[in-house]
Computed example of a mutant assay.
Amino acid sequence: MKLKHLLAGAAMMFAGAAGAQDDPFKVGFVYVGPIGDGGWTYEHNEARLAVEEEFGDSVETVYQESVPEGPDAVRVMQQMALNGADMIFTTSFGYMDQTVEVAEQFPDVLFEHATGYKRADNVSTYSARFYEGRAVQGHIAGQLTESNIVGYIGSFPIPEVIRGINSAYLHAKEVNPEVEFRIVWVYTWFDPAQEAEAARALIDQGADVILQHTDSTAPQAAAAEQEGVYTFGQASDMAEFKPAPRVSSIIDNWAPYYIERVQAAMDGTWESQDYWGGIDSGMVEIGEITDAVPAEVRESALALKESMGSGEYHPFTGPINRQDGSVWLEEGETADDETLLGMNFYVEGIEGDIPQ
């Protein structure tokens, strides 16, 4: 008998026992970093706690932190399912194939995968339009920098990260035509030592504003060692570093989505879907813009946020060219979601190649 049949049979036995005892609905969470990272995983765990608070004794949550993307993730998901999880949230892009694999083995378990694009009858995907927050950050960064060099710490060269770089650059360039972006790829979501080293390297190259798509507060701490360097919180507020170097942040608010999807699963109304929330839904929030930012810049940044939230403005509105100078978006044309989800190119003005 194949492994997936054995596992599915075991899952049915666990589900039957749970039903007989009228146990609480069990929800598992698989985290790529530690819950104390101060960023990405911290916010996912805050949403898990919100689920517990919302449903009380009718829901039980379990989690595993610092799970590497790969075979270890498969084992963790399998164990959660075998231990009676009715629903599992897998919260990193690199869990995509593993989520689909385990979901096939456990057809009665519902899976929600963050930031991926592969679905099945029992696999749904969800993500946030982080690029909207990056537009606000770029707008501020372009006006804060005195060296005209903005540093960007990239995690992995996947569309989610590339979208953010492009959005931040376009909006920095709009307010400061002289601005340059320097990008360092660290090939990790969470490695404080490596993130700090990348921040220091960018500062050594002249960057006086640092953006990051990594999960720890280490770049904030590294920037705090240098006077006149500004940073932005990533995924959570990173408020311990304000009013400077952290001058604002992107906050990922997963709680409403998690509560809604758990409720749907318990009601029997859950269906597989692709969900992409932004400023309009509250999934992307902009943390306090501190007094380290001039008042007029703060006001214009908030106006930009409001225009995206209302749908009046799209961060990728033409004319925009690709890095090689070819036309991507004509005057007034906006990017469609399909193109954004597969974005694998820099826009015109960004130097360097995207690693393969």
Score class of each variant (00 low, 15 high):
residue 175 V to L: 00
residue 231 T to S: 11
residue 164 G to I: 03
residue 176 N to G: 06
residue 231 T to A: 12
residue 237 D to W: 09
residue 266 M to N: 02
residue 229 V to T: 11
residue 169 Y to N: 03
residue 258 Y to C: 04
residue 265 A to C: 03
residue 265 A to W: 00
residue 254 W to G: 07
residue 237 D to P: 05
residue 252 D to F: 13
residue 214 T to Q: 12
residue 190 F to Q: 09
residue 203 I to V: 14
residue 236 S to I: 05
residue 255 A to R: 00
residue 264 A to F: 01
residue 200 R to G: 08
residue 162 I to F: 00
residue 266 M to I: 00
residue 228 G to R: 07
residue 259 I to K: 01
residue 216 S to L: 08
residue 244 A to M: 07
residue 225 E to A: 15
residue 203 I to K: 07
residue 204 D to I: 11
residue 204 D to F: 09
residue 240 E to T: 14
residue 226 Q to K: 13
residue 177 P to T: 03
residue 241 F to L: 08
residue 164 G to H: 02
residue 240 E to G: 13
residue 225 E to G: 14
residue 185 W to L: 09
residue 261 R to D: 13
residue 201 A to S: 14
residue 165 I to W: 03
residue 164 G to W: 00
residue 234 Q to W: 09
residue 187 Y to S: 11
residue 215 D to N: 14
residue 199 A to P: 06
residue 207 A to N: 06
residue 177 P to Y: 00
residue 195 E to G: 14
residue 181 F to G: 07
residue 261 R to K: 05
residue 243 P to W: 02
residue 192 P to R: 04
residue 249 S to V: 06
residue 208 D to F: 08
residue 235 A to F: 15
residue 213 H to R: 09
residue 186 V to P: 06
residue 187 Y to T: 12
residue 201 A to Y: 11
residue 227 E to I: 13
residue 206 G to E: 12
residue 174 E to A: 13
residue 159 P to T: 01
residue 221 A to V: 10
residue 195 E to A: 12
residue 172 A to F: 00
residue 187 Y to L: 10
residue 189 W to G: 04
residue 175 V to T: 10
residue 185 W to Q: 07
residue 189 W to I: 06
residue 169 Y to S: 04
